[in-house]
Design a protein around this nucleic acid. Structure first.
Length: 893
RNA sequence: GCCGCUGUGGUGAAAUGGUAAACACAGCAGACUUAAAAUCUGCUGGGAUAACAUCCCUUGUCGGUUCGAGUCCGACCAGCGGCACCA
C-alpha cells in the first residue's frame, strides 16, 4: 500500500482542494455596507484574533489555538445568519526583524515579506475562514500612513477639564502661548530619566521593562535622562479604570489593568522647611496619621535636596547619591530588603503640631511616584518602621488597633489616638476630618494618585514608523497630512549607533526637511501599529480615510444609521453605555436593540501577555479617537477571552532549548489540518494552560476517521474509497434522532460559551451512536456534518459532496459553510422512560426506570415500595420525602 | 508581602446544589489476521469479600449550611500567574 492509502482517511487529498476552492470562490469574503452583495437584514459579528508578529520561525501551536476558536465562532455565526467580520493581518514592525536584518545585511522589508508569506501559507493550510481581502500589514505604507495620521491627531489634541480629548486648535483660539500649548499636547516632548537599554540600543516603555530588564531579550536597562516623545495616557487613567466595568472581560484581566493603573486615594500635605524658604509636599494615603509623622523622606534625585541640605551633610549626601545612582533598577529592587538613607541636616515643621521632624533622603522613596517625598509614620507603615528601627528614629502611636493587636507596625484601620482633634475617630472619619482641616488651612487637599506613567513613545530604531514631525528653531511641528505616508529612508546600515542617536540620523538627505528644518529621528514603538489595526479591518482598502465612516459604524456598533454623523458620538457621557446616541438601524432584528455596548469588537481572543501593554494602549488610542469623533464607541473590545498557554509534552513551557516544541506543520502533515484544529480545541477549556499530547492528536484523528467511515468504505485490495452501502435515504430511528438533536443543541450552546472541548465530546458520542447503527441515514449525517463543519471544515465539506454524488437532494448544495445551522427539535430530546434514583438519607440505594409522565406521587410510591429502600429504612418511618420528578427520590428517616 | 487563578482516576478532563469521573488518552482482555498495523467488542478510582452479589471509602485539608455539596459559606494547605519599598 502506498503512504496515502495507509492513512485512515485521505485528508491530504481533500484538505488542499477545499482550501483552494474557498479561496477561488472567495467563500469568506465579507462585503461592507454599500457593496453590492451586502445583506443589511443580518446582524453583524466582529470576531478578532490578536494578529501575529510574523517571525522567521513560523507558526507555533499556540497560534492555531486562539485562531481555531475564533474560526469556529465565526463559521458558526455565519451559519447562524450573521454578517461575520473575521480578518487577519501582520504586526510586522519590531526588533526581531531589525536584529535579523543587522545580522544578515538583508533589508528588514525583505525578511518581513518572506515571513508574512510563510505565515499566510501556514494559516491557509489550516483552513481558517478569513476574509483575505482585508489583510493588513503594519509595515505597509498604505497602513502606517494612518498610524502616522493618528499620531498627528494625538499631537494636535489636549485633554480638557472634563477629561476629554479635544483639538489643540481650541487652545490656540484661547490665545495660549506656544509653550503652554506644547505642554498640554497628548503627544509631547519630555526630558526625563528613561529606560535606556544599551544592548538593544533603544529606550523602552515602563511596561516593557520587567525586573529591571528588557521584556524582549532580558537585557539590562538603565535610567538615563533623554529627550523623548511621550503620550499622555495618564490623562485617561480614571476613564481607563472606570470604563472597564462595561466590558465582558475576564475579571483577572480587568484587575491586572486596574492594578497597573494603580489608583490610590489620599491627600497632598505641605510641610514648611524650618529655617528655609522652602516647602515639601508629600502624597499620603493616610493623612489621618499626620500626628504620627516623626520624620520625612525625599527621593535622592529630588530637586529640593540641594536647596535644603545642611552644608555639613553635603559630603554624605553626595556619596549616597553616587551609590544610589550607580545601582541599576534591577539592583535597586534586589537590594530592597535593607533600608538605606542619609540625614539632610534639615528639618520640616509638622503642620498639625509644629514639631520639627528631620528630613532624610532614602532610595525607598521614588521620584516617579506621588511627589517624590513622604511623611514617615513609622508606627503604622511597614517600610517607615523598618527605616526608623534601623536609624533609631522615634516611633509614635497614633492609631489604636483592635484589642489584642500590637500597635507597632499596625497598618490597618483603627481608632485615632494621640492625634489632637482627631482622637477617638475611626480611620475613615479621621481621614475626612483631617482632609477638610488641611484644605481649610491651605496646607493640603484630597488627591488621587496613579501608578500609571505617561507612555514613552519613541524608539531609537530603524524598523518602525517615522514620526510625522519636523524640528525648526528648537520647536517641533507636524508635517501636513498630504505628506503622509512618511516613508523611512533607504539605509544601507540600519544598525543602532551605539549611542542614543537614532539610526535614521545616518540618512543625511532624508533628515533635511527644508533649509531650516530637520526631521524627527526617532521611530514609533512596535505597539503603535497594533493600537488601531482592528479598525483598519473594517475598511482595509480605504485610501482616503483610516476607516470609512459607514464601515466603522457598522462593524463596531451594528448600526447602519444613514443620517447619523460621526461627530454625534461627542454627546455621549463617558462610562455610561446606556445613553449612546448612535441609534440602531430599523433594519436590525429586535434582539439587537438591547442597550448598546461600549465596545465594538464582539469577541477578541488572544494571550494574557498583552493584558497591560497592547490592551491598555489600544483602549487609550480608541478613547482619543472617540473623543475627537472619529469612532463610534468608547471602547474597542467588548468581549475578551484569553487562551491558555500550550505547554510541551513534558509539562514545561515549549522552548527550543528544552526540545519540546511541536511544529504545527508536522502535525498537519501527519494527521491533517482538521485533526490539529480539533485536537487544540479538545485538549481542555480554551482559557486553561494545558500540555500537548501527540496521543491526544491521534485520538481526535481516529474520531475524524470514524466520521469518514460513516460515509465511506475502503476497497480491501486497492485501497480506493467509495460511498458506503450502509448509507441510505432513510429517516433516522428514534435513538439516532435523539443523539443528533442533542448534538445540535449542545454544540450550539457550547460554541457560544467557547466550551469547544465538551462540544467535541458530544460529537464523539453522536458519532459512536451512528457507528453502532447498521444503516446510516444520509440526511441525518448531513445534518451532523453541518454541526461538525465549523470544527473540521475540510472533512465536513468533503463528505457532504461525496454524499451529494449519490443523494443530491439530501446533501447541501454549495459550501456547508454557507448553509444554515440546523435547529433541534426539543421533542426529539425527550425519552419515553427515565431512570429515577432512590436515595435513603442522601445515599444512593436503588434505581428504576419510570415513564417520563410518571407523577410525583407515583414515583414516591415506587420508592417506598422498593425492597432495597425498605432495607435501608430499617423499618423506621420516613421523616421527609423529597421527590425531584424525572431525577430522584430522597427519603429521610 | 499584596492580588488573582487552580487543586477531581495512571493522564487530558466532564458534571443547571440531585447517580462523581461523560468524552478521550494510556493500560488489560478478546475478535479479525499466517503475523503485525489498522479496525471492532468488552473491562479499567480505591478498599473489604469466595463472589460479575453486596458493603465501605473517594473531588487538596478541616469545619459549616442543606433532605442532598466537586459545586454554596468559612478557615487552612499546595501549585501557577501577576504586582512588588507605589507612601
Amino acid at each position: 500500500m502506498s503512504e496515502q492509502q495507509r492513512k485512515a482517511f485521505p485528508f491530504s487529498e481533500f484538505e488542499p482542494k477545499w482550501q483552494d476552492e474557498w479561496e477561488a470562490k472567495k467563500a469568506f469574503h465579507t462585503p461592507n455596507p454599500g457593496e453590492a452583495d451586502f445583506d443589511a437584514t443580518k446582524p453583524k459579528y466582529f470576531v478578532l484574533d490578536m494578529f501575529p508578529y510574523p517571525s522567521g520561525a513560523g507558526l507555533h501551536v499556540g497560534h492555531p489555538e486562539g485562531y481555531t476558536a475564533t474560526d469556529i465562532i465565526g463559521r458558526f455565526k455565519k451559519m447562524s445568519g450573521f454578517n461575520v467580520l473575521h480578518p487577519m493581518g501582520w504586526d510586522a514592525f519590531g526588533l526581531p526583524a531589525e536584529q535579523y536584518a543587522i545580522k544578515t545585511g538583508q533589508h528588514p522589508r525583505i525578511t518581513t515579506e518572506q515571513n508574512i508569506e510563510g505565515f499566510r501559507g501556514q494559516l491557509k493550510r489550516l483552513g481558517f475562514a478569513y476574509d483575505w481581502d482585508r489583510e493588513v500589514n503594519t509595515t505597509d505604507p498604505g497602513y502606517f500612513k494612518w498610524t502616522q495620521w493618528i499620531f498627528l491627531k494625538l499631537y494636535n489634541a489636549y485633554v480638557n477639564e472634563e477629561g476629554k480629548a479635544r483639538p489643540i486648535s481650541e487652545l490656540e483660539a484661547q490665545g495660549l502661548s506656544r509653550a503652554e500649548i506644547d505642554s498640554r499636547r497628548l503627544a509631547y516632548i519630555s526630558e526625563a530619566p528613561v529606560n535606556w537599554c544599551p544592548e538593544l540600543g533603544t529606550v523602552l516603555a515602563n511596561e516593557e521593562v520587567v525586573d529591571g530588564k528588557s521584556e524582549v531579550g532580558g537585557f539590562a536597562v538603565e535610567r538615563r535622562p533623554m529627550r523623548q516623545w511621550m503620550l499622555r495616557i495618564t490623562a485617561f487613567a480614571q476613564r481607563l479604570i472606570d470604563e472597564l466595568d462595561g466590558l465582558d472581560w475576564p475579571e483577572s484581566i480587568r484587575l491586572l489593568q486596574r492594578n497597573w493603573i494603580g489608583r490610590s486615594e489620599g491627600a497632598h500635605v505641605t510641610f514648611q522647611v524650618a529655617h528655609a524658604d522652602a516647602e515639601i509636599t508629600v502624597f499620603t494615603t493616610r493623612p489621618d496619621t499626620l500626628f504620627g509623622a516623626t520624620y520625612m523622606v525625599i527621593a535622592p534625585e529630588h530637586s529640593l535636596v540641594d536647596q535644603i541640605a545642611a552644608p555639613e551633610q553635603a559630603a554624605a549626601i553626595a556619596a549616597y547619591r553616587r551609590v544610589v545612582g550607580s545601582k541599576s533598577d534591577l539592583e535597586r529592587t534586589e537590594l530592597a530588603k535593607e533600608k538605606t538613607g542619609v540625614f539632610t541636616g534639615a528639618y520640616a515643621i509638622n503642620p498639625v503640631n509644629n514639631e520639627q521632624i528631620p528630613i532624610w533622603i532614602a532610595d525607598y522613596v521614588m521620584m516617579g511616584y506621588g511627589t517624590g517625598a513622604i511623611m514617615a509614620v513609622p508606627a503604622h507603615d511597614t517600610r517607615d518602621f523598618e527605616f526608623a528601627t534601623k536609624f533609631d528614629l522615634p516611633v509614635k502611636q497614633v492609631v489604636q488597633p483592635p484589642a489584642g493587636k500590637e500597635w507597632q507596625g499596625y497598618t490597618d484601620d483603627g481608632i485615632a489616638i494621640n492625634s489632637g482633634f482627631l482622637d477617638g475617630l475611626p480611620t475613615a472619619e479621621a481621614k475626612k476630618k483631617i482632609a477638610a482641616w488641611l484644605e481649610e488651612k491651605g496646607l493640603g487637599k484630597g488627591t488621587t494618585n496613579f501608578k500609571l506613567r505617561d507612555w514613552l513613545f519613541s524608539r531609537q530604531r530603524y524598523w518602525g514608523e517615522p514620526f510625522p514631525i519636523v524640528w525648526e528653531d528648537g520647536h517641533h511641528h507636524g508635517i501636513p497630512e498630504s505628506e503622509l505616508p512618511l516613508l523611512p529612508p533607504t539605509l544601507e546600515d540600519f544598525r543602532p549607533t551605539g549611542t542614543p542617536e537614532p539610526p535614521l540620523s545616518k540618512a543625511t538627505d532624508w533628515v533635511c526637511y527644508s533649509d531650516s528644518a530637520t526631521r524627527e529621528l526617532n521611530t514609533m514603538p512596535q505597539w503603535a501599529g497594533s493600537c488601531w489595526y482592528y479598525l483598519r479591518y473594517c475598511d482595509a482598502q480605504n485610501s482616503d480615510r483610516f476607516v470609512g465612516i459607514e464601515a466603522e459604524r457598522y462593524w463596531m456598533t451594528g448600526s447602519l444609521g444613514d443620517n447619523q454623523t460621526i461627530g454625534q458620538s461627542d454627546n455621549q457621557t463617558i462610562g455610561q453605555g446606556d445613553n449612546q446616541t448612535v441609534s440602531l438601524s430599523p433594519h436590525l432584528p429586535v434582539s439587537l436593540s438591547s442597550p448598546p455596548k461600549p465596545g465594538g469588537v464582539d469577541l477578541y481572543v488572544g494571550g494574557t501577555e498583552h493584558a497591560v501593554l497592547h490592551l491598555l494602549y489600544a483602549r487609550f488610542w480608541h478613547k482619543v479617537l472617540f473623543d475627537l469623533g472619529y469612532v463610534s464607541t468608547p471602547e474597542p473590545f467588548q468581549r475578551l477571552v484569553n487562551q491558555g498557554l500550550i505547554m510541551g509534552e513534558d509539562g514545561q513551557k515549549m522552548s527550543k532549548s528544552r526540545g519540546n516544541v511541536v511544529n504545527p506543520d508536522d502535525v498537519v502533515k501527519e494527521y491533517g489540518a482538521d485533526a490539529l484544529r480539533l485536537y487544540e480545541m479538545f485538549m481542555g477549556p480554551l482559557e486553561q494552560v494545558k500540555p500537548w499530547s501527540m496521543k491526544g492528536v491521534e485520538g481526535v484523528y481516529r474520531f475524524l476517521a470514524r466520521v469518514w467511515r460513516l460515509v465511506m468504505v475502503q476497497h480491501e485490495e486497492n485501497g480506493v474509497w467509495s460511498l458506503s452501502p450502509a448509507l441510505q435515504d432513510v429517516p433516522a430511528n428514534k435513538q439516532l434522532t435523539k443523539a443528533l438533536h442533542e448534538t445540535i443543541k449542545k454544540c450550539g450552546e457550547d460554541i457560544e460559551k467557547l466550551s469547544f472541548n465538551t462540544a467535541i465530546s458530544q460529537m464523539m458520542v453522536c458519532t459512536n451512536a451512528f457507528t453502532g447503527a447498521e444503516i446510516k441515514p444520509a440526511s441525518a449525517i448531513v445534518t451532523f456534518l453541518k454541526v461538525l463543519s465549523p470544527f473540521a471544515p475540510h472533512l465536513a465539506e468533503e463528505l457532504n459532496t461525496r454524499i451529494a454524488s449519490q443523494f443530491p437532494d439530501l446533501a447541501v448544495k454549495g459550501f456547508l459553510s454557507d448553509s444554515i445551522w440546523p435547529t433541534y427539535d426539543p421533542a426529539a430530546l425527550i425519552e419515553d422512560e427515565v431512570e429515577v434514583v432512590f436515595q435513603v438519607n442522601g445515599k444512593l440505594r436503588d434505581k428504576v426506570r419510570v415513564p417520563i409522565a410518571a407523577s410525583k406521587e407515583e414515583i414516591e410510591a415506587l420508592a417506598l415500595a422498593s425492597t432495597r429502600v425498605q432495607e435501608f429504612m430499617e423499618g423506621k418511618p420516613a421523616k421527609k420525602v423529597i421527590v425531584v420528578p424525572g431525577k430522584l427520590v430522597n427519603i429521610v428517616v
